[in-house]
Design a protein around this nucleic acid. Sequence first.
DNA 1: TCCCGGAGAATCCTATAGGATATTGGCACC
DNA 2: GGTGCCAATATCCTATAGGATTCTCCGGGA
Lengths: 239, 239
Amino acid sequence: MTTKPNARAAAGSVDRRALRDGVYDAVLEMLLDGTTPPGSSLSIDSLARELGVSPTPVREALVQMEHTGLVSRTALKGYRVAPPLGPEQMAELLDARTMLELAAVERAVPHTESFLPDLKIAHAEHVLSAHRVRRRQQQHGQPPKGYADLREYFNADWEFHLVIIRAARNRFLLQMAESLSAHVHRLRQSADLGVYDLDQAVAEHAEIIAAFESGDDLAPVEAMRSHLAGVAERSLEQA
Amino acid sequence: MTTKPNARAAAGSVDRRALRDGVYDAVLEMLLDGTTPPGSSLSIDSLARELGVSPTPVREALVQMEHTGLVSRTALKGYRVAPPLGPEQMAELLDARTMLELAAVERAVPHTESFLPDLKIAHAEHVLSAHRVRRRQQQHGQPPKGYADLREYFNADWEFHLVIIRAARNRFLLQMAESLSAHVHRLRQSADLGVYDLDQAVAEHAEIIAAFESGDDLAPVEAMRSHLAGVAERSLEQA
DNA sequence: TCCCGGAGAATCCTATAGGATATTGGCACC
DNA sequence: GGTGCCAATATCCTATAGGATTCTCCGGGA
């Protein structure tokens, strides 16, 4: 979290964020670390005390987080951490993601030239973070679950996919992808295969790039399909 | 708003709603009526005074509404009504919707038997509300934009599609559809063709039902594709 | 032993107050 | 006449207080 690669291509104006945005990020990190037991209740006041702020911004952050599905609200009762993804929900998530990303690839193909550099940069960062995780894994034994480098690796992986989805030039597709993003991250660390998945994921990403470069319009779709099938297989075998 | 057809199939327990939920509905209605000029600013305090509540629940309702895209927030500056959908965004919306709904139909086909009754019920309500709008249109001349019967017609139309999407048995697909719903409604009243669209929409819905009943696995997809193409054509010719 | 009811605590929800920030209008100055 | 600066206002954002609701626990009765 040293850098903020949030690509606001508009102006360089870094408009100040309100406190509730910071609380949102904090709670998000807390949830994605996997330390909070799923199903447990999230008390507004507890979070407020823990973060050293008043309940008001915490409430708003939770309202904003509700639509992601990471927390569920019951009126007058409070918020609870979303239960873990069962096998069915995992399959549904992978199915929905596949549908979305294949459609995105189809729409991105005509603009290959314009986004291919970005894709290569994202891939480079992915390779780099993978290398870092691998190194860390060899030095120390099994790292803790919510390791910072691992989180960064996840982000780089997802960013690779986001570049393609952005290239589809459809803000609603992008919106759908972002609404799925939290669940995808949760799935990855739920079945914590992420560590063993490194080489295959990188290789498959490379094949996707190669497919875009081939000039064949159908190749990228197939490459992405193959990649997501691999992700699905590796995810479900763990469960 | 005499009845609440919110189909919570779970239990009959009508858990009391908090005030902020009511405010959300009120603001939503206000926005979907088309009376609020797009791009204008939404003052928290003004809304609070207008609704007779304190700013606190209004703030939370707006936070919840932000992710729908109907309002846009700038930190420390406030909320604004989303600008109207330009031709490009309309095309993107229809494209995304088509992708989503075709995928949903594919996945719903195996469960045709179980949801076909619901679909017929939804269609009946659609026909009914269409009839009501047509009557009203013949009696009085051109009704005002945010007419109650028209709103109900829109809801019935969308509910028909939702039945199919629910039958796909993928909560993430459903989640995506709901995130699109507000924009679909806005598009309909933006290009206020809705009034002249009645017969064709009803007829195409009937063809979709017939396709599901035919037993041919591909027919429903084609029927839906044809319907959505018609919607797109009728929407874009208005703009 | 099991079930029921009520007191207390914890939590949520709304209202209000005050500090912080952005916007607007006017005035001096070039 | 145009431009920049400064005060005044409006608005947002956060903190705190109090009412309303739900949960917990414990004791009495069947």
